[in-house]
Amino acid sequence: MNYVEFHKDKCINCDLCSEVCSLHKLGRIQPSAAAIRVTRDPSPYLGERRCAVCDMAHDRACVDSCPEDALIFDESAGVIRFDAGACTGCLNCLDACPNVARDPLSGRIMICDLCDGSPLCVEWCPEHALTWEGRA
């Protein structure tokens, strides 16, 4: 199983990951709706960085929280898939996992799908704070 790994001590908070992710997935640059988002503790001055992206550890809290079949686990790709047609907009998934985001314009639930095996955020990260890891 593959996933995007975040190395907080290498991140320089440039936001290129969420800019390119949102553009690729939504056709708009909209970091708040990206499937990867970097935040940080403001204290002490410019404190620790955190990254919200699906870690593919897959306790699948988002899937379990979905009362419909709008979120399903795609076993062949090892990622969660979103089906807009089945989504009722209950937003349980957002409460279930902090790594889930939502595009307010389309209502689409945003979860990392690894860009079909070539994650753009990893390619664009200038400091290799995001890496493409395999997991047995």
Binding site: V20, S22, L23, H24, R28, I29, Q30, S32, A33, P126
Partner: peptide
Amino acid sequence: SGGLTMGTPTGAYIKGCRELH
């Protein structure tokens, strides 16, 4: 929380910016 639409198609836009970077 909003988004910005680019004046160049997405694929060409990402490629063009990547070259500048």
